[in-house]
Design a protein around this nucleic acid. Sequence first.
DNA 1: ATCAATTGCGTTATGCTATAACGTGTGCAA
DNA 2: TTGCACACGTTATAGCATAACGCAATTGAT
Lengths: 132, 132
Amino acid sequence: MTTPQLTKNQSLVFDVLEKADGPLSAYTILDKLRDHGFRAPLQVYRALEKLLEYGVVHRLESINSFVACAHPGDDCHSHGIVAFAICESCGQVMEFHDHEVDHRLMAWVRGQKFKPEKTTIEIRGLCEACAA
Amino acid sequence: MTTPQLTKNQSLVFDVLEKADGPLSAYTILDKLRDHGFRAPLQVYRALEKLLEYGVVHRLESINSFVACAHPGDDCHSHGIVAFAICESCGQVMEFHDHEVDHRLMAWVRGQKFKPEKTTIEIRGLCEACAA
DNA sequence: ATCAATTGCGTTATGCTATAACGTGTGCAA
DNA sequence: TTGCACACGTTATAGCATAACGCAATTGAT
């Protein structure tokens, strides 16, 4: 999927996420955009919905937060399943792909005739710096 | 970890999850236990916290729900990472393990010197019956 | 025995996350 | 110019989770 021109709200939300050094909750984004006229959660959630659809933002299910995709300009959908390592101390997120993991999960799925729509892989723990 | 004797509340919550044919939210569990004297969410969450610790219940991060472990009597922790396939139509959950997936993820983690605490793998989609 | 620490429990209140439902305006194609 | 699709704004509400207080039972060390 190619990313269409973003609307004003979508751009604002995306910019906030890109400039952040870690994942943000929808309400944190809302607070950061109050000066730009944002008043209600829905303004954020609606923008996020589109940004997720375009693949330029990821949702971290295990911490109810959102991050800009780590592959600027890339179409994240083409990388297969995206996996995340989330540091519970500093909040840093590392995004990676492993085709063998994809392959194994998809093999299992085929065996069950399960039709996957969205797959989540999230590793929570401590990054190298914080574990020291 | 071996599972100690469950307390009254823990048993009630666990029984509800075991008898359910799919994942339940904490508030759904609460409603099912009102007749047994449950009045507040914390009664459920506190029991769940212990049941998760004992490994007899899993939390599905992507749908904010809980399921009894599919391996009765077993110690789930010994199976490595647990993965779930969640049908978004009928709510059924399949639990599985894949050592190769574990291995690949742990290899990545080692390469980054990341210290994993809890890993989530959840595939949402349609089960065979619902996809037909 | 008794004291201290731990654990489970109950209650009230609160905070965080997400969506429903309504209406407005704009651009575009039939 | 009518109808449709889409973005947007607002209010209200639903759903998920925990903080903070206090009480009771258990356990284990002194």
